[in-house]
Structures are given as structure tokens and as C-alpha cells.
């Protein structure tokens, strides 16, 4: 893999996470440029949310190796917790899957956003209140002043997620991690929230990592896609390269399971993800891979450029011994 350029907001190298004896992430390497949106896609157990949580240093009961370098701060995994507390909300913040449980049920949403603003910007209570109303307006909450005194349960799922977006963006972070921000929402609301996140991060020049399970949505919302299988990166690159010129058999399989409207053909893949005590030491997909060769089970394939052009390797990588 080519050297991480300096303009990367975040570059993760060989991120490996152990939980007990299980290796739930295996040498994850990825980079994110200024203002880029990146999608982590894969099925459950692929480690998408673990990556986001590890970047925030919110993983519990896990051993983490490798590095995650945030521009200007160095390796996040070596910083003190005190320093991390300062960074969370200011440099990087996270939107969780289920806003209903991420918000505190005992405080009004206005107070939750207000205290965030007071903490991050050192504002007085009155100033924070005023700015909270502005933020609520910018995330499209109608009657923002009235909603300031509402408790989370009094808001719909879509409104709760808007409040989460407002809290996450309160400190104008340059990296936003959105963990399945819309999977609990209806499709018409999903479109509203994804557009809102993209619009607000673009306005602020921030970069965004989306954790998604919907490949089609990833292609619509993100510049780059990283495909994960059982904790390993199998393919990464610009969305079009990964989804239309993919070379990894798993990417093909994942894409073939997406039901487009009007599609009448569907090929169901065989088998399931192996459990961690039965995980192959080599490529973790080899037990289900139609193109597996002898070395796949024993040797983990490195992440290498997927193709060469006259000007050198493209920013499209695969980890496969027998690519398509």
C-alpha cells in the first residue's frame, strides 16, 4: 500500500482488536482524505462498528494494536485519556445507530445540546441556549425553541436523530463517524437524515465515515467504500471501482445479494461466517469462497493495489490470492 499522504485526516494502519482469544479486527488499514466520505460496509460481525468505536477509543474489554493517526494529533491509541476527552466532540465525534438510546432520557434535548456547547466552547448558559436553537434550526427541527424543552421520548425517531446530528456537530469536528445513522428509520426519513449529514459535513469541510450495511446507499452517499468480511478488509477504493470493477469474490457476493427493485434473480450464497474459534488463519472468506485455492486457508493475503495503470497503482486495493 502506498504511503499515507500527509493530507489524510485519518489514517489507520494494521488495526487489530482482540476480545479474549478472538481477533475481531485483523490488520485493518484505511485512510480518509480531507472532506471525503467513506463507507464501511459488510455484514454483521464484519467489524464495521468496532472500527468506529476503536477510533473514538470507546472500546471496552478489548486489546487494540496498530495505529490510527488523526492529522495534527498523532496516534490516537497512544494519547492519554485526558487528551482524548478533549478531542471527542471537537476533532472527532460519533452518531450512534439508535438515537433513542444514545440520548439521555432524563434530560431535555435542549439541555443535552446546551451542556455540550458549554463544555466545548466555554459558553455561558444563556449563550449556549441561543446557539442550541440555531443548531436545531440548521438540522431542520421545526419549532426549534419549542423542542428545546422536549424530552427524547417526546420526539419521533427522525427528530431524535436530528438532535444527535446537532450534538455531534456542536464542536465543528473535522471527522464525523456515523454508525448506521438511519437503519432504525423509515426510508423517507432515511433520505432526509443522510442528506442532512452530507450537507452539514460538506459545509464544514469535515470528513465523514459512515458505517452502512446497504451497499446501494453507500454508493449514493460516499466517495470511497471499504468492504469488510469477518474483521478483515477485503477490498477498498473509490465507490465505482469497488462496486463496478470489483475483483474480490466477496464483494461480488455481497453485491449480488442486494435486491434492486424489479430484480427477479437472486443467488443466495452458501454457508455462514465461521465462528471465531473456527476462523481460518489465512483469508477468512476462504470457507465460502468459490475461487479459493490451496494457500488461502493458511496465508492471509495482503492488501495490494487492485490494478496498475501507466501512471502507477490506482487507489483501489484488494486482499485476495486469486482475484477475479
Amino acid at each position: 500500500m502506498k504511503d499515507m499522504a500527509l493530507d489524510h485526516v485519518l489514517s489507520i494502519k494494521d488495526l487489530t482488536v482482540f476480545r479474549g482469544a478472538a481477533k475481531i479486527l485483523d490488520r485493518v488499514t484505511l485512510a480518509l482524505g480531507q472532506g471525503e466520505t467513506l463507507a464501511l460496509v459488510g455484514e454483521s460481525g464484519a467489524g464495521k462498528s468496532t472500527i468506529a468505536t476503536a477510533i473514538m477509543r470507546l472500546l471496552e474489554n478489548a486489546r487494540v494494536t496498530g495505529s490510527a493517526t488523526l492529522a495534527g494529533e498523532g496516534d490516537l491509541f497512544t494519547l492519554s485519556e485526558r487528551k482524548m476527552v478533549k478531542l471527542r466532540g471537537r476533532r472527532l465525534s460519533m452518531i450512534f445507530q439508535d438515537a433513542g438510546t444514545a440520548l439521555n432520557p432524563s434530560y431535555t434535548v435542549g439541555r443535552q445540546l446546551g451542556t455540550t456547547l458549554q463544555r466545548i466552547h466555554g459558553l455561558s448558559k444563556a449563550e449556549a441556549w441561543k446557539q442550541a436553537i440555531e443548531l436545531f434550526t440548521s438540522v431542520g427541527i421545526n419549532d426549534p425553541e419549542g423542542r428545546m424543552t422536549a424530552f427524547p421520548h417526546q420526539l419521533s425517531g427522525g427528530m431524535q436523530q436530528r438532535v444527535m446530528v446537532a450534538i455531534a456537530l456542536a464542536g465543528s469536528p473535522d471527522l464525523l463517524l456515523a454508525d448506521e445513522p438511519t437503519s432504525a428509520l423509515d426510508v423517507t426519513i432515511q433520505a432526509q437524515i443522510v442528506r442532512l449529514i452530507l450537507q452539514l459535513t460538506r459545509e464544514r469541510g469535515a470528513s465523514c465515515v459512515f458505517v452502512l450495511h446497504d451497499l446501494a446507499l453507500a454508493s449514493q452517499a460516499c466517495d470511497r467504500i471499504v468492504v469488510l468480511y469477518a474483521g478483515q478488509v477485503v477490498e477498498s477504493g473509490p465507490a465505482r471501482d469497488v462496486l463496478e470493477r470489483h475483483r474480490h469474490p466477496y464483494t461480488r457476493q455481497l453485491k449480488s445479494c442486494v435486491l434492486e427493485i424489479g430484480a427477479k434473480d437472486l443467488v443466495a450464497p452458501e454457508g455462514t461466517v465461521p465462528s471465531h474459534d473456527q476462523m481460518p488463519i489465512g483469508c477468512r472468506f476462504c470457507t465460502r469462497c468459490p475461487r479459493a485455492v490451496a494457500r488461502c486457508a493458511d496465508q492471509a493475503p495482503p492488501l495490494v493495489p487492485a490494478r496498475q495503470t501507466a501512471t502507477g497503482p490506482l487507489d483501489h486495493h484488494i486482499a485476495c490470492w486469486n482475484p477475479e
Partner: peptide, 22 residues
């Protein structure tokens, strides 16, 4: 039509969402 447009589709631009909620 709005439901149809809101369903994610490969590389289509994100649909203009319906305003408001149910």
C-alpha cells in the same frame, strides 16, 4: 412515487426527500 424514489439505488443521486414526517 416518493417511497420508490427513497429506496436506495446504485449510483443514483440521493432522492429529494419528502418534507416533514407522517
Amino acid at each position: 412515487a416518493a417511497l420508490r424514489a427513497a429506496a436506495p439505488q446504485f449510483f443514483e443521486p440521493l432522492s429529494e426527500p419528502l418534507p416533514g414526517e407522517i
